[in-house]
């Protein structure tokens, strides 16, 4: 087993692991943002209480709707005035003639369905208007999808590079042992007998190569996470907690290392086993 093969696996898995963590976090970030996308349904001010109940029922009965929250206009005004802080008193007189609408806050079961749900609600009776930040929303989806696709392509590309590198480095060790293989075949060794040491070698190589990246990434991410959660973390961006993320990454790196190692070694030994 050569140092070169192990370091090839190490470097590749380090990069793959780092990208994986980045992508998982971006995914997490996107999920959070998406979960925050909600539809505000402004109820027609002419609506009677019974009309409002009907509307609420209609919205709840849509299959793509996850949750419906009702905010009466009085409550909406309270929140608004409270939010004004020191200047709240100037708005107190609004209470006499509340300019706001009653509002349903609707959450779609899948963020991607938001637009469709909003349109459906818009067609219902007694709906004055719906708002869900169309512009921001579409840009957000475009961005997160882009990041996911690019990340996936990058990871796949790196994996293929890793297999190629390992196949090549193992080929070198096999060429060094070509004479040995030749003699083994000459004295009647079966292909399986010749193959298994290389199988083990590939496996060891992949697993050994994944150890350092796992240690480095675990340590690095833990440090990073502690640092950002100690500091005032931006409210809209939370990172994945290290425990589950690191387990997932470690498991994935070990298995990828093993598969890549075994595959690479069997690929390169195959050609030496003909006749």
């Amino acid at each position: 087993m050569t140092f070169a093969s192990v370091s090839a696996v190490t470097v590749m898995l380090l990069v793959v692991g780092a990208f994986l963590m980045l992508i998982l976090n971006i995914n997490h970030f996107a999920d959070e943002l998406e979960a925050d996308v909600e539809i505000r349904v402004f109820v027609d001010r002419e609506a009677e209480a019974s009309d409002q109940d009907d509307l609420g029922d209609d919205i709840s009965s849509l299959t793509a709707v996850e949750a419906v929250d009702y905010i009466p206009r009085e409550e909406g005004l309270d929140t608004f005035i409270d939010g004004m802080g020191d200047e709240a008193e100037y708005f107190e007189n609004l209470r006499e003639e509340n300019p706001l609408n009653d509002v349903f806050v609707v959450q779609a079961s899948e963020p991607q369905q938001t637009e469709q749900v909003a349109e459906e609600i818009d067609r219902m009776d007694m709906v004055d208007n719906t708002e869900y930040g169309q512009q921001v929303f579409e840009q957000l989806f475009a961005a997160t999808d882009f990041v996911r696709v690019v990340g996936l392509i990058l990871i796949l590309g790196l994996l293929f590079t890793a297999v190629f590198l390992i196949a090549n480095t193992i080929k070198l060790t096999i060429i060094a042992r070509k004479k040995e293989i030749q003699i083994m075949k000459l004295v009647g060794a079966t292909n399986a007998f010749i193959r298994w040491p290389f199988f083990i070698e590939g496996l060891l190589l992949g697993v050994l190569g994944s150890l350092l990246p796992i240690v480095l990434l675990t340590y690095g991410y833990q440090r990073f996470y502690d640092a950002v959660s100690g500091a005032a973390q931006l409210e809209f961006f939370t990172f994945l907690p290290p425990e589950s993320l690191l387990w997932q990454t470690a498991l994935l790196l070990v298995s990828v290392g093993a598969v890549v190692g075994v595959w690479g070694s069997l690929m390169s030994v195959r050609k030496f086993l003909k006749t």
């Binding site: 004479k179 040995e180 030749q182 003699i183 075949k185 000459l186 004295v187 009647g188 060794a189 079966t190 292909n191 006749t275």
Partner: peptide
């Protein structure tokens, strides 16, 4: 069959000019 070649080779000893020792 290809898989029987090892069995054939076990009944044959081969000696070369360049010895082929490890």
């Amino acid at each position: 069959k290809e898989s029987q070649i090892p069995l054939l080779r076990r009944s044959i000893g081969v000696v070369f000019q360049d010895f082929k020792l490890l």
